[in-house]
Design a protein around this nucleic acid. Structure first.
Lengths: 347, 347
DNA sequence: CTGAAAGCGCTTACAG
DNA sequence: CTGAAAGCGCTTACAG
């Protein structure tokens, strides 16, 4: 019988027996040490040490109704902007004693809903989603569970839920404005897949709106959608230039796509920016050291992660149900890939 | 009293009452449906639907002694190779009904130990770590909890624990060999921080060994350590060329450092590879579309993630305690940044 | 400051 | 195929 002691992991009860106190005291010693006499604390710590006791999180969660767990769902972790945000979110959550449960939606709203349900089962006390466009079931579940939701990467002053992010439409507009100022009249857009991605949709809307205001049209054929990969960007650029050779300005959905487009331009013998201007989005760290230096819009992903952690913790600990709508600024960073299309005139 | 029903989340008991069955039956309906009569299943599903029941993970974990949770600790999630591996690990774990608990160690073995303890509290049924060099406390804890550990990114046929990764020393050797074949005699190494990073240490050992075999020395001053960032690589390259201007071959710890070094070479007016050869490591996706195309060693991070998920699941479900030591191959991908140093002779 | 005891929401032999 | 009941390992009023 006693043999079992060595094979079974020690419980709070074992610690209590060993230290000659009650389980209540051991529990207090762990969670509210100041309520336990010094001498007992020492005995208990010794017991914990020699038995190699490790608390049982599930039991604690069940009894205390606290999981100290936050859920986050990003489209994919394998995109620098999301991994940067997650890095900071995770780091700050950990500092405050919370655990991050991370899931990926692959840019699918249905998949996102499934992940939300799974996270809810696991008892998350807060949820972070990307964008503000979600399956209705997500909102229903959030309401029922009464946990704070923060939508990141999006800013909407009227949102019913908290958001910490950028104004995507305005950012798209700003890029278009820059290129229009350089007197471009023939545009192409290489966007990420729009379905399930409200950020990309909003940016495209911003671009279209600004072009329209300046009397510049943008045909459907001049907007290409593809996955966020360098190779996809390269192929899209080739397709764009085949069907719309007069294009002098290409707005890309992110930096990776822009690097692919740049690659295609090289292959086509087009000089940048003399023949064609190309813009990115995000200002990921790596592009600071590559040539030609990419004109892009920065995206404060780390700040987003850190601020989200801070908000959520305050929301939970302060029992503060206030909705926060926070707009983080973006800056157009003009470098070497945009300019006047001198070589090919201004048709 | 009844008012509480609307404010409190429904439990299994509520579902059972509503459906007119016992909690045992509801539980079976959820976990082993084939053991429950069809007609009852329908009633129960209806009850779940109308009450909006969501299972309580902690209670389930406590009662069943299963958490369906796997822990993984990477140095940082903000490095393409780790985020790629995690993406696949996460995806495949999710498919199999497991949840990934992700933590970051910031390349600190002490921090790693702390995270391991936290994960253990949360009841992980398996653990994934990067490298084979860990705090002794990690091994002790793993032994005590009897959970499978797999060390990734490392391959050691004698390892006591499972490993799925590459032979880092061999990879380092292979890079050095390539450059020696191109008749380089003056080397520089821009490595990641070595402390707490056995992969980087092993690669450096492999490089040193091969150079030594060919009568080429490598002074301490010719090995620079820096964080994995483009800017750090750029600065290190400047320092290297200031103190060792005769250098014709620079081996970088990863692709990001190599891009930084390439940037510095441009700034210094050095042609690549005519004046100097530069190599990376990892073959991250993005470098496929940038110019000059980087010579590098590929690192099968996605395969590592997927294979780790597969092994762990089999280990847990098959109750198979077999230790697996799996070497994933690497390939030297020779592109445009390495060649004979024609311009500066072969001193 | 400490302990006895109820209870958190499930699962699972066991009996029928 | 189904149910009564014990138990998973903690926390937390409550009483002292």
């Amino acid at each position: 019988m006693r043999r079992e002691m060595t094979i079974k992991k020690p419980t709070l009860q074992d610690v209590a027996d060993y230290a000659g106190v009650s389980t209540a005291t051991v529990s207090r010693c762990l969670n509210q040490p100041d309520k336990v006499k010094q001498s007992l604390q020492e005995k208990i710590r010794e017991a914990i040490e020699t038995l190699g006791y490790v608390p049982h999180g599930a039991a604690r969660a069940l009894a205390s109704r606290r999981t100290f767990t936050i859920g986050a769902i990003v489209p994919t972790i394998d995109n620098a902007i999301f991994s940067e945000a997650i890095q900071y979110l995770q780091r700050d959550l950990t500092k405050a004693g919370y655990t991050l449960l991370l899931a990926q939606s692959s840019y699918s709203l249905d998949e996102e809903l499934r992940e939300v349900q799974s996270l809810l089962t696991q008892g998350i006390e807060g949820l972070v989603l990307v964008g503000e466009d979600h399956h209705q079931g997500v909102f229903d579940a959030i309401e029922q569970h009464r946990i704070p939701l923060v939508n990141i990467w999006t800013y909407n002053p009227e949102s019913k839920y908290s958001c910490i992010g950028i104004d995507n439409a305005k950012a798209g507009q700003r890029i278009a404005e820059h290129l229009v100022e350089l007197e471009h009249r023939h545009f192409g857009v290489i966007s990420g897949i729009l379905r399930g991605n409200d950020r990309a949709q909003q940016r495209l809307e911003g671009i279209k709106q600004h072009l329209q205001q300046n009397g510049i049209g943008l045909d459907d054929g001049e907007v290409l959608e593809c996955r966020y990969s360098g190779e996809q960007g390269r192929l899209a650029m080739h397709e764009l230039m085949t069907h719309h050779p007069q294009t002098t300005a290409v707005i890309c959905g992110n930096d990776i796509l822009a690097l692919g487009a740049l690659c295609a331009a090289r292959e086509l013998g087009l000089s940048v920016p003399e023949d064609i201007s190309i813009t990115g989005f995000d200002d990921i760290e790596i592009i600071a050291v590559i040539s030609p230096a990419l004109t892009t819009m920065n995206s404060p992903s780390r700040r987003m992660g850190a601020q989200t952690a801070e908000y959520l913790i305050q929301c939970i600990e302060g029992d503060d149900q206030r909705v926060e709508r926070c707009e983080l600024g973006t800056d157009l960073i003009v470098r070497e890939t945009t300019g006047v299309a001198v070589s090919r005139g201004r048709a």
